[in-house]
Simulated scan of single mutants.
Amino acid sequence: MDAGLAAVLGALAGSVATIGAALATGWAQRESALITVRSEHRRDRREPRQNAYKEFISIAHRMRNLTAAWAVDVNLTPEIDDTREEAWSQTERTLKQVATDAVLAGPTPVAKAAIELTQSATQLVINLKTYRQCVAEGQGRLVREMRRQLFVSATEFDAALSGFMLIAQSALDDDGSL
Rank of each mutant, 00 (worst) to 15 (best):
G14Q: 09
G14C: 12
G14K: 12
S15W: 15
A22I: 05
A22W: 05
T25L: 15
G26D: 04
A33D: 06
S39K: 10
H41Q: 09
D44N: 11
R45K: 14
R49V: 10
R49Y: 06
A52Y: 01
S58M: 12
N65V: 14
N65A: 15
N65C: 14
A68F: 13
W70G: 02
W70P: 03
D73I: 06
L76D: 12
I80N: 06
T83V: 14
R84Q: 03
A87G: 07
S89F: 11
Q90M: 14
Q90K: 15
T91E: 08
K96A: 15
K96Y: 09
V103G: 12
V103F: 10
V103I: 15
L104R: 10
P107E: 01
V110A: 11
A111P: 07
K112P: 01
A114V: 02
A114H: 02
A114F: 01
A114L: 03
E116F: 05
L117V: 03
T118L: 04
Q119E: 12
Q119R: 10
I126D: 04
Q133N: 00
Q133W: 00
E137M: 04
E137S: 05
G138D: 00
Q139E: 11
L142N: 06
R144M: 02
R144G: 00
E145L: 09
M146Y: 03
R147K: 02
R147A: 06
R148I: 08
R148F: 10
R148H: 10
Q149D: 09
V152F: 09
